[in-house]
Computed example of a mutant assay.
Amino acid sequence: MNRAVALRIAACGILGLGAALLIAALLLSTYTEGKIAKIPLDLDATLVSDGTGTAFNPASLNEERFVIDRDVPLALQEQVSVESPSNADVVTLQVGSSLRRTDQQQDNGLLLAMVDTVTVNRSTAEAVSSESNPGGAVQKPRAIDDDKPPTNIALPHEGLAYRFPFHTEKKTYSVFDPIAQKAYDANYDGEEDVNGLTAYKFTQNVGYDSDGELVEPVRYASLYEDDADAEVTARAAMWGVPGEPDESITMARYYAAKRTFWVDPVSGTIVKKEDHGYHYYAREPLKPEVTFVDYTVTSNEETVESQVAAASDERDRVALWGRILPITFTATGLVLLVGGALLGSFSLRAESALIDPGLDEADHGFFDTQGIQVPGAEAKTEKLPTQRPSDLPPDRPV
C-alpha cells in the first residue's frame, strides 16, 4: 500500500468520524435530552419547614373548654419517596406530611397528618391516571395502636403534584392541593435568588384572594367514614362562644391556604416553599369562630441547601447531555470534516504525482511554494573561456 492510498483511507476515516459526531450532536440535543430531562426514580428526601402559629391544644379535649394557644412553634415535615408503578415514563410519589407542635412531646403535638400518593409524568410533572391506576390516593387514617396494614382511598389528582415541569416557564400552572382535593392556579410572580440559584417564584391561593382576604374557603374533606374531624358537635361552653353554656352547637371545619413556591426553572425542583394554612370551625364559611390551626412555615436552611444541591445535580445532568456534549461534538465534527477534506485532497494530488512524475517539476507547481518562481534557481551559469599562455600579449611576462 503506497502512501497516497493510506492517506485516502485516513481521510475517509476522519470524514466518517466527523459525520458521526455531528449526527450524535443532533441526537443528543433532540432525542437524548428528552430521555434525560425526567424526574429521577430514586427520590428520597425529607423536607422540613419551620414557623409559628395559633394552634389547638389536643390536651384540652378532656377539659371544660377547647384551648387555643398563640405563637406556638410548629414544624411541617414531608417525607418524599418513590413507589410502584414507576418506569421510563411515569413515577409514583408517596408523600407523608405531618404538622406538629414542637413544644409538645411525640403524638401529643400532632395536628395534621396525611399520606398522599400520586403518579405523575416524569417530564411534565402532571398527574396521570389509567384504568388500573386512578392517578392518586390518600391513606385512610389509623389509630396509633392499629396493627392492620394501611388502606388507601382513591383520590384522582389533576395538574402538577410536588414538582414543576422541566424547563418551567413564566406562566400560570395548576397545582393540586391534597387537603382541598382540588387543583388551584399557581401564578408566576418573578425571579429570586435562592442560595445562588435563580428561581422562579409562584404563588397559589386556596380560598383567599390576591389581597389575602378569605373569600371562598373549602369545606374540609374528612378521611374518616363518620366525618369525625369535618364536623364537630359540642357544648357552647366548650366552643367558647356566646349563648347558653349547655347549648349543643355543631360546627363545620373549613380550610384555606396560601403557598409560595421557589422553583428551579431547569429541573422543576421546588427548592424552597412557604406554607400558610388556616383550619377553623364555623357555622358560616366566612365567619371563623374557633381556630384549629393558623400557621405560616418556611423551608429551613438545611432543606433549602439539599433541594438546591439536588436541582444543581439535575441541571448539570441536563446541561451535559443537552448542551455541553452537543456543542463539543459539533465543534469536533466540523474540525474533523475540514481536516478530512484537506487530507483527501492532498492524497489525490499525491496519487496523481506518483502516476505522472512530471508533476514534481516546477512547471506543474505541485511542490512549488504557492507557485512562486525563484529566478536564481532557474538561471544557467555562464562559463568563461580559460586563456592559454600562448594567448597572452608578448610584452607581458609569463
Rank of each mutant, 00 (worst) to 15 (best):
S97E: 01
P178H: 07
A24P: 15
A4I: 06
F202S: 00
R8N: 13
T269M: 09
A11K: 01
T296P: 06
V308D: 07
I179Q: 07
A11E: 07
D89W: 09
Q94C: 10
E169L: 15
D89P: 01
K380Q: 12
F367W: 06
T92Q: 14
P389H: 12
G16H: 08
S222I: 07
L28G: 01
G196D: 05
S299Y: 07
T291D: 13
D145L: 10
K171D: 10
Y173N: 03
L359A: 04
A228Q: 15
F261C: 02
V194D: 02
G96S: 07
G365I: 05
R8D: 11
L223S: 10
L286P: 03
T233W: 15
R283W: 09
T233G: 14
K140N: 09
Q105F: 15
G240T: 01
R3F: 12
Y278T: 01
I36F: 15
A199R: 02
E314K: 04
S352Q: 13
M1Y: 10
V82Q: 12
F346N: 07
V67N: 10
W321R: 05
L22V: 08
H279R: 07
I179K: 06
T260W: 02
E225Q: 15
N87S: 13
E361A: 11
V241G: 08
Q106M: 11
E302D: 06
A6Y: 13
G51L: 03
V91S: 05
Y220Q: 03
T291N: 13
L76G: 00
A252R: 15
K258T: 03
T52G: 02
E231G: 01
L76R: 03
Q139E: 03
L99N: 00
A309E: 08
L26V: 00
R101F: 04
D42E: 13
N57A: 15
G135Y: 01
T269L: 09
L41S: 13
D246E: 13
L17E: 00
W239N: 01
P85Q: 12
L41M: 12
G16P: 06
D356T: 12
Y220A: 05
E131C: 03
L22S: 04
Y278N: 02
N205Y: 09
E64Q: 09
Y162H: 11
L342H: 08
E225F: 15
M238K: 10
E274Y: 04
H279C: 00
